[in-house]
Amino acid sequence: MQTIEEIQEEILEDFDMFEDWIQKYEYLIDLGKDLPAIDEKYKIEENLIKGCQSRVWLHAEENSGNIIFSADSDAIMTKGIVALLIRLLSGQSANDIAHADLDFINKIGLKEQLSATRANGLLSMIKQMKLYAIALDK
């Protein structure tokens, strides 16, 4: 299993290949489309993350010390970002997730995704993933 840092490096390399924002956003859209569907039973009010303009459902479960995330969003761009976060964090140990330094968003030139209103959503997502990790850590 790759570490979170290694996966971050990989994502940075992926995004380095793109020449313009269109390619970058198309890639995000594709990631969103390819994200495995969340089990419908988890698309409930309790799993909604607050602070997003679009709705994001996040579910987490523990599997022999590792945290498995699944998620969905009704907006495809948001889903693309969620897919990146899942690629990074799903399957990692609770401890690693809780202490992960996720600076890749800035580096891949999606800074505007971090600006004010949208940032709330993204930061809420990361915070919620870390909280799940801490809560499920046994």
Binding site: W21, Y25, Q53, S54, D74, A75, I76, M77, T78, E112
Partner: peptide
């Protein structure tokens, strides 16, 4: 079939 948020983000770009 498209969420308004996605339209807004792309238009902004």
């Amino acid at each position: 079939g498209i969420h308004p948020y996605d339209i807004g983000v792309l238009l902004d770009k």
